[in-house]
Simulated assay, not measured.
Amino acid sequence: MLESLQQLLIENGALGMFLAAFLAGSFLPFSSEVVMVGLLTAGTPATGLLIWGTLGNVLGALFNYGIGSLGKEEWIQQWTKVSPEKLERGKRKVRKYGSWAGLLAWIPLLGSVITVAMGYLRTNLLYSVFNIAVGKFARYAILISAYKAL
């Protein structure tokens, strides 16, 4: 089923990239890199993929931030499946680094925990969005560069 969803997203070009990146940026277990490489292989312009991928991934992270900002740990555990231990770890990182922790939001699994914790601790939204966007943009730019180098 996952492969057919990835194929459907690839068939939808930039919109598919946006949706894949949103899913991957949220707490859902999804890999937008597979869709991006599929679209690059199909000849989709890299610049559009970089923009739509970054935008979707940032919005997915903001979805996590929103859930965290509700402030109910039982809801966080129920909706995001983030364990209390992982949430505590994420909160420690965010307390230490504040909105700068958003630079690590691109890391699979850890990024979701960080963005939920950022919302829970209500880090400055503007700075958080900026740092999240920088990290996610850099990840996709590196992926595109690596693909082009092959």
Rank of each mutant, 00 (worst) to 15 (best):
F30N: 05
L143V: 15
A24G: 02
G135A: 02
G119D: 13
M118R: 03
A14S: 08
A149I: 00
M36C: 15
R89F: 01
F30G: 07
R122F: 09
Y140K: 01
P45I: 00
A21V: 07
V35S: 07
K93S: 01
S145F: 14
K91H: 02
I51A: 13
M1I: 01
F137A: 11
I132S: 04
K148T: 06
K72G: 03
I51F: 15
W100K: 08
M1H: 11
N131D: 09
K86P: 07
Q78S: 15
R92Y: 03
L5W: 11
Y97A: 10
L9Y: 07
L40I: 04
L5H: 00
L49E: 14
E3R: 11
W79D: 04
L126M: 14
N12G: 02
G56K: 10
Q6K: 14
G111Y: 07
G48D: 12
E74F: 06
P108V: 02
V116K: 09
I76S: 01
V116L: 15
G13R: 11
A46H: 15
K91G: 05
G90Y: 06
S83N: 05
F18A: 06
M1K: 05
A149D: 05
G60K: 11
M118Q: 11
G16W: 13
A61W: 14
N12V: 00
L55H: 01
L40T: 04
G68K: 04
L109H: 03
W79S: 00
F30M: 09
E3F: 05
L59G: 08
G25Y: 06
I67E: 08
M36V: 12
G16V: 06
V134G: 06
I132C: 05
L62D: 14
M118L: 12
G135L: 02
V129Y: 08
G13H: 12
W106F: 15
E11K: 14
P29Y: 01
L40S: 08
W100A: 10
S83M: 04
S4P: 02
S99I: 05
L109Y: 10
V113E: 05
G60V: 10
L109E: 06
L9S: 07
A105T: 05
A141S: 15
Y97Q: 12
R92L: 10
N124Y: 13
F63V: 03
G13C: 07
G48Q: 14
P108I: 02
R122T: 00
F27H: 14
G135K: 00
V129N: 06
E3S: 14
E85D: 10
G119M: 09
F137C: 02
A20P: 11
Y65S: 04
G66Y: 09
A61I: 09
Y147M: 01
L23W: 12
Y147Q: 04
V134S: 07
L5S: 00
L126A: 15
G71Y: 07
V129Q: 08
A133W: 07
G111A: 04
A20F: 08
I67G: 04
S26D: 05
S32D: 03
Q77F: 13
L15H: 00
I144W: 13
L103D: 13
G60C: 12
G25Q: 06
T80W: 03
V58G: 04
A42V: 03
N64E: 09
Q77K: 10
G68L: 08
G25I: 01
E85A: 13
G119F: 11
G53M: 11
T44A: 13
S145N: 02
N12T: 01
Q6G: 01
L104C: 10
P108N: 03
Q7N: 11
L110I: 11
S112V: 05
L143H: 11
G111N: 07
F63I: 00
